[in-house]
Design a protein around this nucleic acid. Structure first.
Length: 626
RNA sequence: GACCCCAUAGCUCAGCUGGAUAGAGCAUCUGCCUUCUAAGCAGACGGUCACAGGUUCGAGUCCUGUUGGGGUCGCCA
């Protein structure tokens, strides 16, 4: 039991004795301007004590001083009872944990957790938005592992559909047999290139027709298409609001675009794919293969990994049996055209389509099926989906559906929703070429790390291989820390110029603190643990370091509960700062008192463990020197 | 139009389930390396917590409304 919870237990007993209250007290850290370690706010107990705030605080303080061996003294300011911990307790805390490798981690639990993240489309290379997803997902998985859970990291790859066919068609027509080998391009970038080629060709091909259609000129042999256009055109004439006009124009553009020769060929290719056409499948496999090779190297470089891959080409037909089950149970209902719906208006949502009139799946149909599949394969108690917040509504619907279908695992489903990454210029838009490519960004960061490190010259003499690994680690820690220290739920701004900063509240700052400790420990005399225990009182900065360390277990716990690696990042900054203050104020190896040296080295060692463990929770490898 | 999320220092962000005089980093300015890693430490400057009400002994935090920003409401995924 740690000091804080032991103290809380003592206070609870006192409150029961004095006022007959039976509730756990809430303790705060005492603000630095006051004397004390923990503060109890007594306002909530005034009713029970029948006294004023100061008197109540005094009374509780006196009773506590008598009862608890933890307390050295107390002081009362208004309704605040500041408690000073017997300094010996901090020594005992240090003694107990300084050499514990897994300090802060939870005890093993039987609960099984699946974290699904990454989940890319196979038509474009990864970009900055994916990186936030990947870093969050991997970190959440590490957090739950640290919390003692059995974790499966899953990746559901969207490897089929019209967007994949676009790349395939463009390559077929304009590729001249280009391959990653022949072009020297990374596979995912090569396929992405043809996706862009397709979009450009499509724009060229359908541009004039769109222009004409927006002027009211559109002729099509298909009567249905013609009617839809005519209706839209009529609406456009009547529309007054700017927003509405833009929407109708978009509809018309899409209608015309979909009738272009390229789009028709693309749709035909998708039908061939679904029919199992050998040639189409072969091309699909080849090009997806290139993409996977590219993704694998990017994931590896980003330091993320997966235990299980799902592919939409396998799962896109799933869920139909559950649709039938839902119809039988009366959870879903049929419309005249044969489409299947669920009415979620009781839960404040809308009616939602779950299967098309022709019996084919929509997005959510697959998700229903995949949820069931995950449960059957892994018996997961908790299933976490790391997906952007633009899908908040979708997951609300999905989880409600699973609940209404009576799935026991529905309550364990959670959408780890995160905000978009904005650039100083605004939203990333692939059409405007403002996306930040993952591979480019990684390389820029590595180059920056090398330049900074070389300029400082502290690593001279290390073998090149080690240096390269160091640059990778430092670059990654800067990037991951920059992204993970922000509350996942909030949208965040990524300024490429500033993110490369290695000073202040950054990953390299934490790494630096760790490397500095490791350097001390490497140079420590072999027999330092032999010295007698120190009797001297600790300084305030030393106690502050131990207080910060003591918060690690609770931080891990809270980070799991809130699905927020940001809490760990903030803790890392607190801890590194707390240590750096001690470092600045006291000596370690230069300390002439052997007992004090021993105590400080224990603190250094414990801090290094905690830093390394917490960094690992963010998916960052701690470096030994820098 | 309906619903969801967000708004804290010039900039980027913390602020735990309501608690004392709202905190960091960057930027600007001042100090500290012949001593264990200065990617560090210490200090200064900088705030009507978007606005208006309300609940409370106490509100950046909870409720209502307003404004501003983003998202969703596709038989796209």
């Amino acid at each position: 039991m740690n000091i804080e919870s032991a103290l809380a237990a003592d206070i609870q007993a006192v409150l029961k004795d004095l006022y007959g209250l039976d509730q756990g007290p809430k303790l705060d850290q005492t603000r630095p301007e006051f004397e004390g370690d923990f503060t109890l706010v007594v306002f909530p107990y005034l009713r029970a004590s029948q006294r004023g705030p100061e008197e109540t605080a005094q009374q509780i303080g006196e009773a506590l001083l008598e009862r608890s061996s933890l307390i050295a003294s107390f002081n009362v300011i208004k309704g605040f009872l500041n408690l000073v911990i017997q300094s010996g307790n901090w020594g005992a805390f240090l003694e107990q944990h300084w050499d514990q490798d897994r300090f802060g981690f939870g005890t093993p639990k039987t609960e099984k957790v699946m974290v699904e993240y990454a989940s890319p489309n196979t038509n474009k290379p990864l970009h900055l938005g994916h990186m936030r997803n990947n870093f969050l997902g991997y970190s959440l998985a590490q957090l739950f592992k640290a919390g003692g859970y059995d974790v499966v990291m899953a990746n559901l790859i969207n490897d089929r559909g019209i967007h994949i066919c676009k790349s395939m068609l463009a390559w077929q027509r304009f590729g001249n047999g280009e391959t990653p080998e022949s072009s020297g391009l990374k596979g995912d970038h090569l396929v992405g290139k043809y996706y862009v080629v397709f979009e450009n060709a499509l724009r060229e091909q359908s541009g004039p027709a769109i222009e004409a259609a927006l002027q009211g000129q559109f002729q099509h042999e298909n009567q249905v298409v013609q009617t839809r256009y005519n209706q839209a055109w009529t609406k456009l004439q009547e529309a007054k609001e700017e927003k509405q006009i833009a929407k109708i124009k978009d509809d018309i553009k899409e209608l015309v675009r979909n009738q272009s020769e390229l789009m028709l060929a693309c749709q035909s290719m998708l039908r061939d794919w679904e029919a199992g056409d050998a040639e189409t499948l072969a091309l699909w496999k080849t090009m997806n293969g290139w993409v996977y090779e590219g993704f694998d190297s990017t994931w590896k470089r980003m330091g993320v990994s997966f235990d299980k891959f799902y592919y939409e080409s396998d799962t896109y037909t799933l869920g139909k049996d559950l649709i039938q089950e839902g119809l039988d149970k009366g959870v879903f209902y049929l419309k005249e055209d044969g489409s299947v719906w669920i009415d979620l208006r009781d839960d404040g949502l809308d009616e939602k389509l779950v299967q098309r009139g022709d019996g084919t799946s929509v997005y959510i149909t697959q998700d229903i099926g995949t949820a069931q599949l995950k449960y059957e394969e892994f018996a997961v108690d908790r299933s976490i989906y790391v997906v952007g917040n633009e899908q908040d509504y979708h997951f609300k619907v999905l989880f409600l559906i699973m609940e209404r279908l009576g799935r026991s695992y529905a309550k364990g489903m959670y959408h780890a929703s995160y905000g978009m990454v904005d650039l100083p210029s605004g939203k990333m838009k692939s059409r405007e070429g403002t996306v930040v490519d993952a591979d480019d960004l990684l390389q820029e960061m590595v180059d920056a790390a090398r330049e900074t490190t070389e300029a400082l010259g502290k690593t001279d003499g290390l073998p090149q291989e080690e240096l390269n690994a160091l640059y990778e680690s430092l670059a990654l820690s800067a990037l991951k820390f920059f992204i993970l220290k922000v509350d996942p739920k909030k949208r965040m701004l990524f300024n490429p110029a500033e993110s490369i900063d290695f000073q202040g509240d950054t990953g390299p700052f934490v790494q630096y603190s760790h490397a500095r400790i490791r350097s001390i420990l490497r140079s420590a005399p072999a027999d330092w643990t032999q010295a007698p225990e120190a009797e001297e009182a600790m300084s305030e900065t030393e106690i502050n370091l131990l207080k910060t360390l003591a918060q690690f277990p609770d931080t891990v716990n809270q980070a799991c509960l809130q699905y927020s690696p940001a809490l760990v990042a903030q803790f890392l900054l607190d801890l590194a700062k707390a240590f750096n203050r001690v470092y600045n104020e006291h000596s370690f190896l230069k300390e002439t008192n052997a007992s004090l040296m021993k105590r400080r080295l224990k603190m250094a060692s414990m801090t290094a463990h905690a830093l390394r463990n917490a960094l690992n929770l963010l998916g960052i490898q701690a470096v030994e020197r820098m």
